[in-house]
Design a binder for these strands. Structure first.
Lengths: 345, 345
DNA sequence: CTGAAAGCGCTTACAG
DNA sequence: CTGAAAGCGCTTACAG
């Protein structure tokens, strides 16, 4: 049906070798031959068969992106950044998501790994050993926000710890004294790092106050329910740090519904700076992570790893986060103290 | 490096043909041979080379998804639905986005079409002729929300017209008399259909009121600016229908900032029912489209088209939308009138 | 039930 | 600058 390189060769009256060379831009083709070949290819609507090419070149021009989930703007932003960078590099992207556990993630890696030149992996579940057992030796990989930073994989991570530390410090600077955390899902690396930042900030800056953690799972709904639990407490906290914006907004909704005034009676802060964060009432103080940039950098790391001469050693790169101060935890009368983003390693 | 079918054959002491048959589940392989082969394959971590297989089977087990953009939750939901259905079918998905115009979309179709068994295309720009000129004959395609419904392509579309018609009718039923539209981007099919629904509802239900359209482009920011323009009008409308939720929320923000009470002084309605819509203050009345379902159905349509015996004729399928009534246009004292979703064709 | 062989559509030394 | 030929790793009639 579709034209092959043979058809083009016949039409241009040259060998398939010459067609291949002309189409791949090798210089050693005469001007007239090249012209005839290009003309014939155009006429026949010739498109090289990618599988045949891959078979011989051992390159697919495709990279795989393994994501734990696809809910929410975080992932569309991430894919957007990856896709943009990939297009610049002439690479296609194969997407796979919804891996509930390590086993599923490993299976997805298996089926992808034969079809791609490299893999971008975000998996809160997988560990280093499983990864090593699953990945074909020599396949370039960049781990995104995945808790495997010790053993020979390139990785890129959001500075969750610092972001959480900074925002809790900010709340304390604003005069809040009893700050509760709405946590993310258990065994989720991002969630754990944010919790750790919360704990450390509290311990260092308010040593006499003990942390209070309300379980959440990153969904709006869990934030809403957490808000209701706060309302039911005998001794309510005076501020809440939610481990992501989505929960912060759910919580805000619960509080507003109950007539609690934010930020006067209770401060709220989130994490991520999703687009909607600035549009809720009151606008949400949060930590911004440039997610599309994150995706883009991950892809560029991967591309760099394609060239072994450039890629001498694996390393973990951290992506700077920045505090975004809005009014959801600005008590009237408190003085302003703005923290800047820490330069990342 | 990686093991090939030859290595497995050698290890299991059979021919490559037998290995191929065993691994592909053909029945005509003796039990012992199958056992030895499976064992050898496992030991060698054999994974069939997908390019080699594709070359001979003419199937890639991959479908391409062409999207105009990747901003916002709409697209992550869409990809999620597609990805879920694809996984069930054992298909991989190749994603490509950010095609500013028809030419870019055509180029993306070109580079993808050699690597996929079928294509899901959402492109507000492309027209039927260009599509016909670009697509290899015989490649299964399903158009998603793309204004090419007349010439022999399968298509699936959101019922934008009806959704807009229904929500404007709802506003009128609530007693609003002067309803302005914040439109979507020009030459965008969804936007045009929603505008058409708005115009028709107004013409039929309030024949003496002329429509008022404020230009927007689906971004929060354009909604915000539209809100400011409304505030500056000499004769303000008493309700606003924004062509998507994102703009509705931007507009709401502008109004709230200016001290306008919603819904008492001005009603607002949106379109899409993005997750945040229920969390803003007041919660937004909107039209819900089950986006993940939409993606899933598109993929299933495509898979059906793989089997020519099942797939006799192309057709356009419309996805039901439903009105979601919240408080952003509930004036005190107005009576309730809830419209149900229309069954789709 | 099994194997030898052809062939899918390319690229790339090799020889001229 | 060009062509003949080998070979990438599979699958599948064909013959036994």
């Amino acid at each position: 049906m579709a034209a092959t390189i043979k058809d083009v060769a016949k039409a241009a009256k040259v060998s398939v070798a010459t067609v291949s060379r002309a189409l791949n831009g090798h210089s050693s083709v005469s001007v007239e031959a090249r012209k005839r070949i290009l003309e014939a290819a155009r006429k026949l609507r010739y498109v090289p068969h990618s599988a045949a090419r891959s078979l011989i070149t051992r390159r697919t021009q495709t990279i795989g992106v393994l994501l734990p989930d696809l809910h929410g703007e975080f992932f569309s932003e991430l894919i957007r950044g990856i896709d943009q960078a990939a297009r610049r590099e002439g690479l296609h992207i194969l997407v796979s998501s919804s891996h509930g556990d390590a086993k599923e993630a490993a299976a997805a890696i298996q089926t992808m790994s034969g079809r791609v030149d490299g893999l971008l992996i975000m998996s809160p579940h997988i560990d280093a050993r499983l990864l090593k057992d699953t990945l074909p030796a020599g396949l370039p990989v960049v781990l995104m926000n995945t808790p495997v930073d010790d053993i020979g994989y390139d990785a890129i991570a959001i500075d969750n710890y610092w972001g959480a530390y900074a925002i809790v410090s900010h709340l304390i600077g604003r005069g809040y004294q009893s700050i509760a955390l709405i946590s993310g899902p258990e065994r989720n690396h991002d969630a754990e790092e944010r919790a750790r930042g919360y704990q450390d900030a509290l311990r260092e800056r308010l040593p006499n106050v003990s942390p209070r953690v309300i379980a959440g799972n990153f969904s709006e709904d869990s934030g809403y329910r957490a808000g209701q639990r706060v309302l039911a407490m005998r001794e309510r906290p005076d501020a809440i740090f939610a481990a992501n914006d989505t929960m912060a907004i759910g919580c805000l909704f619960a509080l507003t519904e109950a007539g609690i005034r934010v930020p006067q009676e209770m401060g709220i802060a989130g994490f991520d700076d999703i687009p909607i964060a600035r549009f809720v009432t009151p606008p949400l103080t949060t930590v911004r992570v440039r997610i599309a940039d994150f995706g883009q950098q991950a892809l560029e790391r991967l591309v760099a790893a394609f060239d072994p001469s450039l890629h001498v050693q694996t390393s973990v790169q951290t992506l700077r986060a920045e505090l975004v101060v809005r009014s959801s935890c600005e008590r009237p009368g408190s003085t302003s103290l703005r923290l800047a983003g820490r330069p990342s390693g």
